[in-house]
Design a protein around this nucleic acid. Structure first.
Lengths: 223, 223
DNA sequence: TTCTTCACTTTGGTATATAATATTTTCTGT
DNA sequence: ACAGAAAATATTATATACCAAAGTGAAGAA
């Protein structure tokens, strides 16, 4: 039965996957816990077909393990796992930034300038929600300018290991972001690919380290 | 008493995914072609549920695009896509090699030595099948020694963009492999992390370039 | 105790129905 | 005859029921 009547039905499986991904990255679902298709189907008011689809997708993303005939279990995601994912992200994002610096058109730079101005304003008034969104927009613009869809795809994949709304919870993050983005933007404006790579790599690596310690602390507190 | 006539049924979805992945990486399925769950279900003699599961998995891997309510289509995979995937692979494999060099125990080095000896022998007698398998074993041993499951997972993911049995089709590959592995093994034996990283990165980058040109040539010939 | 058997549970797969959306065809008015 | 509207059709996504095979665990036999 339908739990809800909704005007439009989005891809149910994707929604369920998002939901569970959040639960896993935020630590609500403990490592090793079994995840049954019917259970999540019941919880989300959907049927087992899309629920199962979601679980398969999460397995492909490395959030769930699947033992044949024995079902899905939550994969372990500790600080080192996140550290490694962010290491990959930092390397790939560095490459994208380098390419963006080489290829950037005046339009791209203008777009980045505008985003950066708004981002700085949001940081100054402490608007974390806007800040997070503008941060995303800034990075998306760079990834777009780099014109490397497969690298962007890898980034999307590994960046799922950061919980939604995580960045806003880091102390001092607004200032760091504004600072790092300023340097990055300078390098791109100057067309200095190698400096853009370094700036970006460091920027991402730094954020990853913060998240990883955060997770280590959480696991230490729990276990 | 134990051995059944019919072996255990494998995960149908995984088999179907493998099959289709081969078709896509080998160029049998052209970019943009629609892929219907029922069609592949019919072709493989399975039902639509595991077929659809396979398509979802391939979407997660970037081999298929999914437009909501309009079905799956084969994603474009050209030389530059493969080049980028191999770039990621080269960076991550370099990191794994560096860690392996730092952590390698005498047992690991002994295992690598043995694999390398067999690999050299296989190369000398032109046994491409064994060569390919031993090459895999060599890299797997390094990835294991590095003790970084998430990085290994990323490697597994991006290396799917190389078609099965591709390496054996490269001219001069046996010699190159023996040569590169020799240097790599030396660096690991010496515990020289940075040299191991460089050797591995170059090794993978080189193989990727070969595959990418191969694919470019194929696409040029076709389209 | 240790091993075997057997009922029970869960998973993986099949089949089919229904709802929602795209696409194509038909129809209508000018 | 033709452009645009409306209906028919196709296809996708989701839901549900059912079955066979594999795993689990408890009761009883050696």
């Amino acid at each position: 039965m339908n739990a809800r009547i909704r005007p439009v039905r989005p891809q149910l499986g994707d929604e369920a996957a998002s939901f569970l991904r959040d639960q896993i990255t935020s630590g609500t679902l403990a490592a090793g816990a079994p995840v049954r298709p019917e259970t999540v189907a019941d919880e989300l008011g959907i049927s087992t077909t899309p629920a199962r689809e979601a679980l398969q997708a999460l397995r492909a993303e490395g959030f769930l393990d699947l033992a044949p005939r024995r079902g899905f279990t939550v994969a372990k995601v500790d600080g080192n796992d996140v550290r490694d994912m962010f290491l990959v992200q930092s390397m790939v994002a560095g490459e994208l930034a380098a390419r963006a610096a080489s290829k950037a058109t005046p339009e791209t730079i203008a777009a980045l300038d505008e985003i950066h101005t708004e981002l700085t304003a949001a940081a100054n008034r402490g608007d974390l929600a806007s800040l997070e969104e503008l941060n995303h927009a800034f990075h998306r613009e760079i990834n777009l300018a780099a014109d490397a869809p497969r690298l962007a795809w890898v980034i999307k994949l590994v960046s799922r290991y950061a919980p939604r709304r995580f960045y806003a919870s880091i102390n001092g993050w607004p200032e760091t972001t504004v600072h790092d983005h300023t340097g990055l933007l300078e390098a791109i404006r100057a067309g200095d690919a190698e400096r853009a790579r370094t700036e970006m790599t460091e920027h991402v690596r730094h954020a990853g380290e913060q998240l990883a310690s955060h997770i280590d602390a959480r696991i230490a507190a729990q276990g």
